[in-house]
Amino acid sequence: MDRRERSWTLYSKPGGLGYESADGPYPFGTPIRLPEPFGGTVDSGGF
């Protein structure tokens, strides 16, 4: 989450040197779709 830019990025697939996957950035208010095994969607409108 970047409050200055009012955006979020979803990082996933942790690896030895950081995350292997990044989805974003997207503006606040864009739904966050969580990858498996979590699944589901988070509303980012309240950030």
Rank of each mutant, 00 (worst) to 15 (best):
D2T: 03
S12K: 03
L10A: 00
G18R: 10
E5V: 04
S21F: 04
S12V: 04
Y11R: 04
S44K: 10
G40R: 03
P14L: 12
Y26V: 04
I32Y: 01
A22C: 03
G16L: 13
P25K: 02
S7M: 03
L34N: 06
L10P: 01
P31E: 08
T9D: 05
K13L: 12
P14Q: 14
P35N: 13
Y26M: 04
T9K: 05
G39H: 11
S12P: 02
P27G: 11
K13Q: 15
Y11T: 00
T41N: 10
G24R: 00
I32F: 01
G15N: 03
G24A: 06
L17Q: 14
G18E: 13
D43M: 09
R4I: 04
T30K: 14
G15M: 09
G39C: 12
L34R: 02
D43V: 08
F47P: 00
G39W: 13
G39I: 01
G24I: 01
T30H: 08
G18I: 01
L34E: 05
P25L: 04
G15T: 05
T41W: 09
E36T: 10
R33D: 15
K13G: 01
S12N: 10
L34M: 15
F47E: 09
P37I: 09
P31T: 15
A22I: 01
T30N: 06
E20P: 00
G29L: 07
A22E: 07
G46H: 13
P31A: 11
R4Q: 09
G29D: 04
